[in-house]
Amino acid sequence: MTAKTRIMAVAMIATGLLSLASPSLAHKLHEKGAAVAVANAPLWVTPSRDWNQLSGRIGKYAETWTLDGGQLNDVTFYGGIPAGESLVRERSKKHDPLPKFTAETLLIEVPELVERTYRAFKGIGTFSLISTDPAPFLGKDGVRFTYEYTDDDELTRKGEARAAIIGGKLYMMTFDAPRLNYFGKTIADYRALADSATLR
């Protein structure tokens, strides 16, 4: 065995090991027009164009979709967060707890809950709620709010979200994208997706 063939053999074994691990990390394609349940909840959406589901989950009740990549447009579904739970997974329940959704949380306080979660999770100071308006979501009274923040990649992102509290659980869809180009380019796709959402 020459040095070259030995290197190639090692490389092949390494590739084999990597490919064994990869299927569990696969992302998923959701095709246009096919209704699908999201976030392990009876929350159904019918995409009006193809979307990618990212395999990583930021929380037990969350699922993330994207068009160009999570940093560029991120739609996160929160499917029925029960009272006493945080929106996303806590880094440390003891040392770094996140704010919780509670049975007493009012609809008008949901934007504040999102703000405090973003600030505490990312450790940032620049987050501002821009508007909060009543808007139906999943056929119930809901809230639609918009926000803007800059985290440590120093790219200012805009966000829009819709939420409703149904049966004591919080259902929400957020859309985050860089203010530069991506937010304006893909906000219509997010709104179409949010309009298609139903609770079955």
Binding site: I108, L129, I130, S131, T132, P134
Partner: peptide
Amino acid sequence: ASDASMILMM
């Protein structure tokens, strides 16, 4: 206020 319509509803 940015949340005026929401408060009004309450």
